[in-house]
Design a protein around this nucleic acid. Structure first.
Lengths: 243, 243
DNA sequence: AAGTGGTCTAGACCACGGC
DNA sequence: CCGTGGTCTAGACCACTTG
């Protein structure tokens, strides 16, 4: 097998395996080829195959049983998120089977309030960028997102920001930052005026609030976010497998 | 270094490292020893050290930077759960800094309703065990848990079940099952009569509902659960790190 | 340039499950 | 018993960051 030199070998292996699972070449309930068979087939070492399989197992796509074999997990499609990845809203919407799109609402520069300053480890009153966006699942608005980012991190003019991009792209393109670590708080709350004006359904309805803090390369906070999540339309479900 | 033969070498290594982090021997912001230094110190291969470090990195305890080094994550203590482990309520309460305890409420055998039968992959009307418990954080009731398990899985008399045990123990002791895979749905809802009679706070209050399906060795569902979670007292926060 | 973590190899032995 | 995945070793080279 010839590998293109863009990704690691183990990554290419797990992509092939994922493709085969999606195609139905490996079916739930039937043993997949053993590690040795796969390493022979791909012409890589068994350790490399194991790296690829470990990645699939961690996200619950396959289940591995010592002394027996490796099996496709028949239930994984029931979960919309893996790995506790609650901040990647695009992936969350895709996981629910919808086509995600992002509508840019507003962007503004203003001084940080005390609470924001504390979380972002900046001084109170220091400038922050406040970015408001609305996420759609197919044509329905499902998540109202409010992000606050220290202005000092911005590397390009404020006006140049394309608010409809994936948050990862925004940080890469305009802030030269990479998201390394995230903490998400999940709360139950009721629909307020602001969120209610964008999301469907009545005021006072019970909804989910995801409070996110994103950290960058130096383990410093690079953004906070409050995401109002319409759980009447989107399911927030997490999968976890053990070894 | 002499290793006791009860756990794997890499497990013993990561426990030592965890201990050192807790003791403050490795501090946030200061580079930890390199992989080579650790493998020399412990007298194990670099691959074994990497296995241990990978485990710590996956739960966000350490952060690794290629070309630079490994650092203790200063922010990890802000999360109460890792790995999307939302079904282990005891761990969730501990993660919030409380002492967990479980109060057994009721246990009964009854026919499964249609919905339960569907989820548990059994026939409608087949017997299930319904186990209700209340989880305390210190002395406060914080989670009302309602579990439904197929009666056919039970290996001991119904009366022998100790409802105050950890769910993992219950499955091991009385069902001879191991929890291999779990899917948790998170919903926002309002306090109803049943939950309200156990948890503090008024009816109609906005609270979190965790709907769990647990799968066993054969990838068959072994239990469903509905956990009413008082997020006014407990924080549900998840950490996630990238590589 | 030096040192770090990231990837990969080719071996070895062990623990476990099904036959 | 045999084959499976689980662990471990001792090397090698690469990609990246920092001084």
């Amino acid at each position: 097998m010839v590998f293109v030199h863009t990704k690691t070998v183990s990554n290419q292996v797990d992509e092939i395996l994922l493709e085969r699972i999606r195609e139905g070449m490996y079916l739930p309930g039937i043993r997949m080829p053993s590690e040795s068979e796969l390493s022979d087939e791909f012409g890589v070492s068994r350790a490399t195959v194991r790296t690829a399989l470990a990645k699939l197992a961690a996200s619950g796509i396959i289940l591995r049983k010592q002394g027996d074999g490796t099996y496709v997990n028949a239930h994984i499609h029931e979960a919309s998120a893996q790995f506790g990845n609650l901040w990647d809203l695009v992936q969350l919407i895709e996981g629910n089977g919808y086509k995600p799109s992002i509508k840019f609402l507003t962007i503004e520069k203003r001084p940080a309030c005390e609470k924001e300053a504390l979380v972002l480890a900046i001084d109170k009153g220091e400038d922050v960028i406040c970015l408001r966006r609305l996420f759609y699942a197919d044509q329905q608005p499902v998540i109202f997102a409010d992000n606050v980012i220290p202005y000092s991190l911005l590397k390009t003019p404020l006006e140049s920001i394309d608010g409809s991009l994936h948050i990862r792209e925004i940080f890469r393109n305009y802030f030269n930052q990479r998201i390394v670590f995230a903490i998400t708080d999940i709360r139950s709350t009721v629909m307020d005026d602001l969120a209610g004006s964008y999301l469907s359904g009545g005021l006072g309805r019970s909804i989910l609030q995801l409070q996110v803090v994103l950290y960058g390369r130096n383990n410093l906070p690079i953004a906070t976010g409050v995401n109002i999540f319409d759980d009447a339309i989107l399911r927030l479900s997490l999968a976890q497998a053990w070894f």
